[in-house]
């Protein structure tokens, strides 16, 4: 099977055999070595590579995230648009699985608009379903962090972006700053919330809950350079096999990693335009607009002040 060849075989350390007992005496040191093939070391850069061609829409990531982070349900109800009843990321939903069913010509921009296609004539790729587990992107130049006036949002030793709940005063400026609509205020506790990339688990040597629970390895956790390399190989392999729609979103130099954002520590392999998944194709770094706005504004004030001084000085003479 070609698909199996794709996923690089990660050597399982021999010490995995040490933990074969059904009941373990305690936490496994550096457990991420066994589950993700990566050792978590402070000072290195970690992130997610979410390969949407492997996503089966099981929402195990959403559930694992809610369980580990003790997040309540947002809205128990049916959206009526797809199997996605979460809708969007929020203060209480840090993973969100998007579902897009591709039937007919409208959604399929590849062959031009209006091309009538249906499930029997479409190539059997991903069952004609696009599914994507969305998450905070942990941007390299994170606009939320750059906007935070209290220093509550900070960059951790794992190169991730986290809100410190004991400092956040709920000003809410990070909410409109985020170019992906991720950060959200919880009005119940008056603080901003978002994915922490399981900061607490990383400190304990554990892979983030969503990645660990993903049954197809659609969500892969690892060191960023390794993930980018792995992702590029995956794109090459998909292109070789004819899936030429595949591309990376948020990896260095690709869509999503635009506007001075650098790169996204959580990046994606997509097979349709970013907007189809609710992602902007060229997000920007909000703080690049501080100097133009402030500079122009102060220049305006200086000019108007000169006018006032001239009028008042004339007043004095008269």
């Amino acid at each position: 099977m070609g698909a199996v060849k794709d996923i690089p075989a990660r050597a399982v350390p021999k010490r995995a055999l040490d933990y074969a007992e059904p009941i373990l005496p305690g936490m496994i040191p550096d457990e991420s070595e066994l589950t993700a093939g990566v050792t978590i070391v402070p000072g290195r850069s970690y992130g997610f590579f979410t390969d949407t061609t492997l996503c089966i829409g099981c929402k195990a990531c959403e559930v694992a995230c809610k369980e580990w982070n003790a997040l309540p349900a947002d809205d128990v109800g049916l959206k009526g648009t797809s199997y996605d009843n979460t809708g969007r990321l929020s203060a209480n939903s840090w993973r969100h699985v998007a579902f897009v069913e591709k039937i007919g010509g409208d959604l399929d921009a590849g062959e031009g608009r209006g091309t009538e296609r249906n499930t029997t004539t479409m190539p059997p790729f991903q069952s004609n379903w696009l599914m994507m587990s969305d998450v905070c992107k942990h941007c390299h130049n994170a606009p939320c962090l750059e906007a935070c006036p209290t220093g509550s949002l900070f960059r951790t030793e794992f190169d991730t972006v986290v809100v410190q709940q004991d400092i956040c005063n709920g000003c809410g400026y990070c909410v409109p700053a985020c170019p992906f609509g991720v950060v959200d205020l919880n009005v119940a506790d008056g603080k901003a919330h978002k994915c922490t990339l399981c900061y607490d688990r990383l400190k304990g040597g554990l892979e983030p809950a969503c990645a660990k629970s993903c049954p197809t390895d659609s969500i892969q956790f690892g060191e960023l350079p390794d993930l980018v390399e792995r992702a590029r190989e995956r794109v090459d392999s998909l292109h070789e096999r004819g899936a030429t729609d595949a591309y990376l979103y948020g990896a260095p130099g690709s869509p999503g990693a635009t506007g001075d954002l650098g790169h996204l520590n959580a990046f994606f392999l997509l097979t349709d335009r970013p907007e189809t998944y609710g992602l902007p194709s060229a997000p920007t770094r909000a703080s690049n607009r501080v100097a133009p706005a402030l500079g122009t504004g102060l220049a305006t004030m200086a000019g108007l002040t000169m006018v006032a001084v001239a009028l008042f000085a004339a007043n004095r003479r008269s």
Binding site: K79, A109, L270
Partner: peptide
């Protein structure tokens, strides 16, 4: 960057009208 579906022209499709921000 390897071109893919993102290099197709944008035809105004979004995600069920959900706000992206």
């Amino acid at each position: 960057h390897k071109p893919g579906a993102a290099d197709r022209p944008y035809q105004g499709v979004g995600y069920y009208g959900q706000p992206a921000l």
